[in-house]
């Protein structure tokens, strides 16, 4: 029984990390109506920037204190997000869903290729930012890195939720997510919204990279997390910030249960397929997710 609860706790913590990555999807969608497929690559870019300012800089003899390195990373992510918005998504405002989708796909392979050209394909150790080790709570062992990440996720969720539902700018972004043309006719700047969306999205992705990778291995393959978080974002609802961590919890717990009890029977496939099976089920049964906006199609 203790083992079962231990599995549940691990699943919940990993699920909240998925939730954090899913939030970076939702933030971009909620402010710009773009589902960014390349979010995994954006996360890898954030992680590599952080590596550059910590380990990379230390490697060439510059020891940057950690808080400054974090600030530099946030700055670099901001510049990166603005660049993506300016060069790729601004010219495509008002284009069809297909065009936006393909731009996301192109961005995916562009960032993958650029990351490989700039930093190389070999894997390296990621900087240790969050404390390693485990805390004992009663009979259970809790990974302290994931625990801090989970608390951070919950706080960030609430903060972003307040931002999007209470602040003036947040409400304007929501109008853009509803419809570009309507937002423009109401005097809302779609360009500004997409810019803000990308900056928020890249910064959240970098934060997720910190939680996910602190003290472990950093390589190009980490980008797969983007495709794992996509079902989470869909299940929670693309417009719902608070839905993302909840869906993350659900999928994380289901995934560890599948990997503990179904994988021995299915040769290891069950936990890998599960998020996507959930995604297809969500699309079939409730395409707008648990807490998304229900849209009415008009002619």
């Amino acid at each position: 029984m203790i083992e079962f609860f231990q599995i549940l706790i691990e699943g919940a913590l990993v699920g909240l990390v998925y939730g954090l990555v899913a939030i970076s999807f939702v933030v971009i969608y909620r402010a710009s109506k773009i589902i960014n497929l390349a979010q995994g690559e954006v996360l890898v870019f954030g992680a590599f920037m952080l590596w550059t300012f910590t380990e990379g800089a230390a490697g060439v003899g510059w020891d940057i204190p950690l808080p400054v390195a974090l600030l530099l990373t946030v700055g670099a992510c901001t510049v990166f997000g603005v660049t993506v918005e300016r060069t790729i998504f601004r010219p495509l405002i008002g284009q069809s869903a297909f065009t936006i989708f393909m731009a996301g796909v192109a961005l995916l392979i562009l960032l993958r290729g650029l990351a490989q050209l700039i930093w190389g394909a070999e894997s390296r150790s990621a900087p240790v930012i969050l404390p390693e080790g485990a805390i004992e709570i009663g009979p259970f062992l809790v990974n302290s890195r994931l625990l801090i990440g989970a608390i951070f996720t919950l706080v960030l969720t609430q903060a972003l939720h307040v931002f999007f539902t209470r602040s003036r700018l947040g409400l304007r972004l929501a109008a853009v997510a509803e419809d570009h043309t309507t937002a423009l006719s109401l005097g809302v700047s779609v360009r500004q919204a997409i810019g803000v969306a990308w900056v928020l999205g890249t910064v959240v992705a970098a934060a997720a990279a910190v939680v996910l990778l602190s003290g472990s291995i950093l390589s190009l393959e980490v980008a797969v997390i983007g495709f794992k978080a996509l079902p989470v974002a869909l299940l929670g609802g693309m417009e719902s910030i608070r839905g993302a961590p909840l869906a993350g919890l659900l999928i994380g717990i289901l995934e560890v249960l599948a990997s503990a009890y179904l994988d021995p029977l299915t040769n290891g496939a069950a936990s890998g397929v599960l998020p996507y099976a959930v995604m297809i089920a969500v699309l079939l049964i409730r395409p707008y997710g648990l807490f998304g906006w229900r849209k009415i199609e008009r002619l």
């Binding site: 192109a106 961005l107 392979i109 562009l110 993958r112 290729g113 650029l114 490989q116 050209l117 394909a121």
Partner: peptide
């Protein structure tokens, strides 16, 4: 990597 950048 270079060819994927060019294709993108």
């Amino acid at each position: 990597a270079l060819s994927s950048v060019v294709l993108a």
